[in-house]
Amino acid sequence: MSPREAETPAPPLPASAPPEAGATALRTRGAVAFIAPALALVAVFLIFPALWTLYLGLTDYRLTGIQAANPQFIGLDNYAAALGDPRFGNSLWVTLVYVFGSAVIGQLGLGFTLAWIFRGWRGASRTVLEILVIVAWIIPSSVVAFLWIAFLDTHDGTLNAVLGNADVPWLFSWPLLSIIVFNTWRGTAFSMLLCGGALSTLPPSHLETARLAGASSWQQLRDIVLPSIRGHLLTNLLLISLWTFNDFSPYLITAGGPNFGTETLPIYIFRNALTNFQLGYGAAISAILLVINLVIALVYLRVLRKRN
């Protein structure tokens, strides 16, 4: 709403600008001076490491051995090796399933559903609900991982005890599903809060009018709610997709196993760079991961801009 209101008083400004060209230049210089420190920080901590990663990806640099002391330039060999490694393809697929299952379906789907169901709740009951959901989000990953290992343990796990069926090896037989449920549990709070906030911006009168006109719950949702909060949902989806894409916490539960069944790209990078010590190869895969992240971000930004 507010950006559109801002457009109305805007025109007078450009009209008065031309006579003071010198002042504009001064203003530009001032602006540059102001953002220079920030740009320097971005350059040092973001752009330089990214370029360095690109460079490392072209070498056979290792953490130990001769290649640690004297890395050789090997061109695109690392990229060729990645594309030829069936486990890279596997991990890319695992990552996509993991993102789609736990972020898109799990966190956003469940988060929105919870926010919609409990939108009418106010006061103490809502506070309690929010605290319960947020707890899952604020506990440190290492603690959560331990809780989930205990929860899903084959012999002494809580889940098997509750179900009363002995010894279902969840992490072994359903590894990917297990970490999808885990990540859904972990991240739903964020989506729920964001969707809850978005829903509260809806003028109640719109829904009231719709209801009086005889619209069903589903129709209200489809024709009023979703179009109005589409921007919020997309922003949320962008954030959680990128987070989930780069998420490392499944490693704490399954270490990428069994037999690479849960080896997402970050875990694949970790295994090659810090377990197998192939830093050059790890850097090359990191660059690929960066590109994938950029593509995801671009797609979302495109969709967002279309709306405006």
Partner: peptide, 11 residues
Amino acid sequence: IWIGEFAQAKY
């Protein structure tokens, strides 16, 4: 068994 690779890396 790590000695060789650490020595070669000059660590």
